[in-house]
Every structure is written in structure tokens, then in C-alpha cells.
């Protein structure tokens, strides 16, 4: 049997606390299959945690699930995290700074910043019907 050129792994996560840990276990297996080094594998895991908990927390999803697709395209891993929530406008998301967080009541709001710093590319598609975060990491 000839190997598929773009292997895919699809994961459906119920919105349950800590279920993001299931996503990083899958990411570790995919990263190992691609022979990614430990640093890149860990960066993917951290970005995936943030994308998943963002989807859990902000989507107000009716479906109760978050879909995660891993696609291996040559030497690049493409991960899509999709929720069916109300969407968001990236323009309204302020870049967090610790100097502003100290002394503020709102310490959170770091997820998008972390995802963008840890992955090679990140794209957001959002509408009132849901949000898909597409992130890539090259080997």
C-alpha cells in the first residue's frame, strides 16, 4: 500500500475541562511521526492548548464540541481548530503586555499572542457561525 501524501488526523473534543490535554497527546504522536524535534513538538503542544481553551472558553458553542484537524503536508504540519461559536473580531483583541496586566483586574488574554509566537504561521477565519484557527509548523 502506498503511503498517503497528506495524512490527516481528526479529533473531536467535547467541551470538558482539561480535554485540551487529549489534543496535545495527539499532537505529540503526529509530531513524532513527522520526526519533529522536541522543541517544535512542545511549541505545537502549547499553541494547541491555547487554541483549544480559547475555543472552549470563547466560542459559546452550541455543538458542545471543538474539531481539531492535523494535516501533514510534506514537511509542514497544518493544524485547524474549529468551533461553532459566535466568532470574534481579531481587530478587537489587544496585544497583551505584562506592564499593563500588573495593576489591572484582567490578567488573562494571552492565548492569541502565545499561538502567534510559537507557530510559524497563524490565520483566523471567524464569523457569527464559528471560528477556525489555522496554524502551521515547518519541520
Amino acid at each position: 500500500m502506498s503511503p498517503k501524501k497528506t495524512p490527516k488526523v481528526e479529533l473531536t473534543l467535547p467541551i470538558i475541562p482539561d480535554m485540551e490535554l487529549a489534543a496535545i497527546k495527539t499532537a505529540e504522536v503526529v509530531a513524532k511521526h513527522m520526526d519533529l524535534d522536541e522543541e517544535k513538538s512542545a511549541e505545537i503542544g502549547m499553541a494547541l492548548i491555547e487554541a483549544t481553551i480559547n475555543a472552549f472558553e470563547h466560542s459559546e458553542s452550541d455543538s458542545g464540541n471543538v474539531e481539531i484537524h492535523f494535516v501533514i503536508q510534506g514537511d509542514t504540519l497544518v493544524i485547524k481548530v474549529t468551533d461553532k461559536g459566535r466568532g470574534f473580531d481579531q481587530a478587537n483583541v489587544k496585544v497583551p503586555k505584562i506592564e499593563e496586566k500588573l495593576g489591572s483586574d484582567h490578567k488573562r488574554g494571552w492565548g492569541l499572542q502565545l499561538i502567534q509566537e510559537l507557530m510559524d504561521t497563524v490565520e483566523f477565519e471567524s464569523s457569527p457561525e464559528g471560528t477556525t484557527v489555522t496554524m502551521t509548523k515547518k519541520k
Binding site: E39, A42, M46, I49, K101, L102, K107, W110, L114
Partner: peptide, 30 residues
């Protein structure tokens, strides 16, 4: 995750009020 780490920022803030310090060791690289 960033929510847990945000709570460390709260601790730093409280320690600043008393001239305290927070440190860490044995951190995983990520």
C-alpha cells in the same frame, strides 16, 4: 496554560506590594 500562568502574574503583583520576590527552577524549556 496561559490561565495558570496569569495567576502567577497575580502573585507577582501581590509580592510587589510587600517588596517580595518570586523565582522558579527546573522549568521545562517550553
Amino acid at each position: 496554560n496561559s490561565i495558570g500562568v496569569s495567576i502567577l502574574i497575580e502573585i507577582i503583583e501581590k509580592l510587589q506590594d510587600v517588596d517580595g520576590k518570586l523565582g522558579y527552577y527546573n522549568l521545562a524549556p517550553i
